[in-house]
Write a protein that binds this DNA or RNA. Structure first.
Length: 494
RNA sequence: GGCCCCAUCGUCUAGAGGCCUAGGACGCGGCCCUCUCAAGGCUGAAACGGGGAUUCGAAUUCCCCUGGGGCCA
């Protein structure tokens, strides 16, 4: 039988890395087995679900390359794929359970349940629902309804069922005692289904064969299995993936900040880097290789190899990996890197409006000489902001380190004269001019190069000097040297 | 509080009784390369939570404890 899986996000926020990770693993597993992957929107929490979030989640999944075969925007045989459009189905199935005696109306008020709970706590017993509505007589039902009480529906746990075994694809065999469970609510008094119940109905009616979800749902599994039994349905296989943790080792959530996938996208992270990084959390290929294409991941991924323990999301390693992919993109599709850099420059206010062809070509040249220094597009600000500023921002430390008053000023002006004569203004002649100047002054090349770098860029780090001079162009180079010569005179020789 | 899951360097992990003097990667330190930085190469520091048991032999099996996490409340 073909594998059918699903990812079922709630559109109550943007897709976060934990959810994306789960979706990706599910997708990898499905593709490895040549199965079908369904996207289902769990929007029963109407107060917090929005269409905008739903659209954003779809967009972010697509950006990551996680594609679904059926979903809210794809016509499929088991739709609709939004829970709010399936309300009738839940009511019908709840009714089936009531008819079979597997569920019953419960009229207990929240206050009454709270009293039960407190008594249990006072007597140091574990709290379990008392079951007082379990065996109500028809007369009692009528009385409750006459009193204006609306019933919720509770699932009748067969306490004599004994041991419930969950044979998990990741965790292995886990046992629960039916006697530890109490009758749980499957439908609220307003007629809306609870998560656990809607999930079972949906997974079965959508023919899901393998349920993948976060480990936090493991405890729900025995309850769900009981419902499958009550319906007489075949149970799907389950796989609980470990939780994604924040640096505090708590389950990753919005309070950890920077957890939305689109936040990473906005910062210029590449989807292939994100996805490769995801793969390495909880799963490693046999040979310990770390960089591989999606195709390789699909081929190698085995759900049995997924680890059991929660993983901390290490943003530093992700950034390193982004550098690996950025450098790869630099060789294969440099214009893509240029686009990302343009975004970063725009974000920093160093570029405005739409970049014209000339500007794009200029950025491409900058990227060509310094792209291998970038891990993130915004690193362009660290190494090459001077390419995009009219006024060089001088790092005081760099100036203090490299400028020596009159001596430096003379050297800068001498090089200026030499560069003014270089034709064409290309790297070969430029390098010659710099080295000749050093010889003429009786110093080593680097004694010229370092101060000149500060003069032209304001900093001690950056791309090769000869390259950057060429890209900067004669006019700006001459102007900056002249300006820097004056600045040098103001610095006290150390 | 009850139930469940987890446990190797700071982090992601390899390790399914002897191959472990516990390997790799990120990060951190050093060296090389070099006009700087980055990249690259070499290299260093860095872990089996504790206690029992099984075994000739345990990171690897079992039990207890501890710690962390989750679900229900």
């Amino acid at each position: 039988m073909a594998v059918r899986t699903r990812y079922a996000p709630s559109p109550t926020g943007y897709l976060h890395v934990g959810g994306a990770w789960m979706a990706f693993f599910t997708w990898l597993f499905t593709r490895h087995d040549g199965g079908q992957f369904v996207l289902r929107i769990e929007d029963t929490d109407r107060s917090r679900s929005t269409e905008a979030f739903e659209a954003a989640i779809l967009e972010d999944l697509r950006w990551l390359g996680v594609a679904w075969d059926e979903g809210p925007d794809v016509v499929g045989p088991f739709g609709p794929y939004r829970q709010t459009e399936r309300a009738e189905l839940y009511r019908e199935h709840a009714a089936i359970l009531v008819d079979r005696g597997a569920a019953y109306p419960c009229y207990c008020l929240p206050e009454e349940l709270e009293t039960e709970r407190q008594r249990a706590a006072a007597e140091h017993r574990p709290y379990r629902y008392s079951g007082r509505c379990r065996e109500l007589t028809p007369a009692a039902h009528a009385e409750m309804q006459a009193a204006g009480r609306h019933a919720s529906l509770r699932f009748r746990v067969p306490v004599t069922r004994g041991t419930l075994v969950v044979d998990d694809l990741v965790l292995g065999r886990v046992e629960f005692a039916a006697a530890d469970l109490d009758d749980f609510i499957i439908q609220r008094s307003d007629g809306t289904p609870l998560y656990n119940f809607a999930n079972v109905v949906d997974d079965h009616s959508m023919r899901i064969t393998h349920i993948t979800r976060g480990a936090e749902h493991l405890s729900n599994t025995p309850r769900q299995f009981l419902m499958y039994e009550a319906f007489g349905w075949e149970q799907p296989r389950v796989a609980h993936f470990p939780s994604l943790l924040g640096v505090d080792r708590k389950k990753l959530s919005k309070r950890h900040g920077d957890t939305a996938v689109r936040e990473y996208k906005a910062q210029g992270y590449l989807p292939e880097a994100l996805v490769n990084f995801f793969a390495l959390m909880g799963w490693y290929p046999e040979d310990g290789r770390e960089i591989f294409s999606v195709e390789e991941m699909i081929a190698r991924f085995r759900i049995e190899d997924v680890g059991k323990s929660g993983a901390v999301f290490d943003a530093q390693k992700l950034t390193w990996m982004n550098g690996v992919y950025l450098h790869q993109a630099l060789r294969q599709t440099p214009e893509r890197v240029a686009d990302l850099v343009i975004e970063a420059l725009r974000g920093a206010g160093l570029l405005d409006g739409d970049a014209g062809p000339a500007q794009r070509a200029y950025v491409a040249r900058v990227v060509a000489i310094m792209g291998d220094r970038l891990r993130l597009p915004k690193d362009v600000l660290t190494y090459g902001d001077f390419f995009f500023r009219d006024e060089v921002v001088y790092d005081p430390t760099a100036v203090r380190k490299q400028f020596r008053g009159q001596v430096t000023a003379d050297m800068l002006l001498r090089l200026r004269a030499a560069l003014a004569a270089v034709a064409p203004f290309e790297i070969g002649g430029i390098e010659q001019a710099v080295r000749d100047t050093a010889v003429a002054l009786g110093v080593e090349s680097k004694d010229v190069i370092h101060p000149v770098r500060v003069a032209l860029t304001g900093k001690t780090v950056g791309p090769g000097l000869f390259e950057l001079i060429e890209v900067l162009g004669r006019e700006r180079v001459l102007a900056r040297l002249e300006h820097a010569a004056r600045l040098a005179l103001e610095t006290v020789p150390q």
